[in-house]
């Protein structure tokens, strides 16, 4: 077992916008030096108490880190993947001792469940799904939704896990006649699920009955949009989308996220707000995550940018540390921290206030 020392670092001040919002609290140094692909958080229960742990993924290894005192971390378990590389970590909310991973080269070929080790035992893993998998997302109440197959034989299914990560069952949802690329839960509506499709539609399912409730075409200005957050208010559906292919606009800059409003009854929709980079900042959306009213995105420039979705503007910029570009960013599902990773495998944990 290796123990990594916590290192308090000064935030890079030059070029930072409101750096006071970000406080580096801890760092996990990658001892292997191999290419890091993702990070996530999981609750690990041992001897009756639950601890918020970090999961890191390199192409061939997934590691579980438990917290020690004063923000130090101890690597307690690793799962090895020699045949198919790891693509992403898929946290499953409301269950403990379990995290899922998506494996594949360019597209997802397998989804596996990793069971965190109980006292004196080894961590186990189980194959949940294999094939041509297009999208996967962990949902509240210990559920996992995925879409697979081609548009002709597309299968959309939801698996359910027990709170301790045990037993699972799968329910099929009615597939739309378009390939589903991403999923998003509708906040506060446990039975509602959204999907975005390859031809820029948003679909809504009833998770309880498996019904496809609506398919709505949205603006064609931005292709391959990903839905990061959805909520319903006053009979309208609000969605936060990211636009990887959005181009710089002379009047308002480079749009990275967009808030759209949809009337699910009529399918009429319109853009409400564009979340753009501040003047002088270049780059497009590479990867990002939204939690409550804060959105974070890694840009093609290697900087991480933050937006307050209520205020409507960029609130902080985190430039590359030691000339190493950021490659991924995630909000922790176990607390309010931000997990930021670099290609060299080092993970930085920030408090955003």
């Amino acid at each position: 077992h290796s123990i990594e020392q916590t290192e308090m670092m000064e935030l890079p001040a030059s070029g930072s916008l409101n750096p006071g919002k970000l406080h580096l609290v801890s760092k996990l140094k990658n001892p292997s030096g191999s290419c890091s692909v993702d990070v996530g958080a999981v609750w690990w229960e041992r001897a009756g108490s639950k601890e918020p742990c970090i999961i890191t993924a390199c192409e061939d290894v997934v590691s579980l880190w438990k917290p020690l005192d004063t923000w130090q971390w101890e690597k307690v378990y690793t799962w090895h993947f020699t045949e198919v590389p790891v693509l992403q970590i898929v946290p499953v909310p409301d269950v403990h001792n379990l995290v899922c991973v998506a494996l594949g080269s360019l597209e997802i070929r397998e989804i596996r469940a990793l069971m965190c080790p109980c006292d004196g035992e080894h961590g186990k893993q189980a194959l949940l799904k294999s094939g041509d998998i297009k999208a996967v997302l962990g949902l509240t109440k210990g559920r996992l939704v995925s879409s697979s197959g081609t548009v002709c034989d597309q299968q959309v299914g939801v698996m359910s896990f027990a709170e301790d990560g045990g037993s699972k069952e799968e329910q099929l949802l009615m597939p739309p006649e378009e390939t589903v690329l991403t999923f998003a839960e509708v906040q506060g509506m446990q039975e509602a699920l959204l999907g975005t499709t390859i031809v820029n539609s948003i679909v809504i399912w009833n998770l309880k009955t498996g019904q496809l409730l609506k398919k709505m075409h949205i603006d064609d200005s931005y292709q391959a949009s990903t839905c990061h957050r959805a909520y319903s208010e006053m009979g309208l559906l609000f969605v936060v989308l990211s636009h990887p292919h959005a181009k710089m606009n002379e009047s308002f800059g480079s749009p990275v996220f967009q808030l759209m409003v949809i009337n699910p009854k009529t399918t009429f929709n319109m853009g409400v707000l564009l979340y753009c980079l501040p003047p002088g900042q270049a780059g497009r959306f590479l990867e990002g995550d939204v939690k409550d009213h804060v959105a974070a995105a890694v840009l093609t420039s290697g900087t991480i940018a933050f937006w307050d979705l209520l205020l409507g503007h960029c609130t902080a910029l985190l430039p590359p540390v030691s000339d190493q570009n950021w490659s991924f960013v995630k909000w922790s599902g176990t607390d309010s921290h931000l997990l930021a990773g670099r290609k060299d495998g080092d993970i930085f944990i920030y408090r955003y206030s």
Binding site: N206, Q211, V261, N263, P264, M270
Partner: peptide, 23 residues
């Protein structure tokens, strides 16, 4: 654009769409 452009809204849209959609 305004809210009126979105057409009539319903607070119970999810239940209504569920009762209208094929099972």
């Amino acid at each position: 654009c305004s809210k009126a452009d979105l057409g009539p809204v319903s607070l119970t849209w999810f239940e209504e769409l569920s009762s209208e959609a094929p099972p």
